[in-house]
């Protein structure tokens, strides 16, 4: 049951589009910045399968330029 947060950077001028795209995806919550081209993305998935699917969808987003991880949590013990 992983939880991650990222800083998502849109391709030039596509912040609104990125917000719309991210908001459409399941298990995603966003906090857009007011004054910079940055969006905070928090994901919360029930299991690894869903998580992997979500990663794929994120990879395919046209409006997304890069994604950097800022926080990670997984309650599976190693």
């Amino acid at each position: 049951m992983p939880i991650f947060s990222y800083l998502a950077l849109p391709i030039d001028g596509a912040r609104e589009m990125l917000c719309t795209d991210l908001a459409k995806l399941p298990h995603c919550e966003i906090i857009p910045s007011d004054n910079r081209e940055v969006v905070v993305l928090v994901t919360d998935t029930p299991d690894d399968d869903t998580e992997n699917k979500l990663q794929k969808s994120l990879n395919n987003l046209q409006s997304l330029q890069s994604l950097s991880l800022t926080f990670g949590y997984d309650d599976k013990e190693k």
Partner: peptide, 13 residues
Amino acid sequence: KQSEKRGWKVTAV
């Protein structure tokens, strides 16, 4: 894209 991830087997990073 997705510059850094995987390797997150630890509980909290």
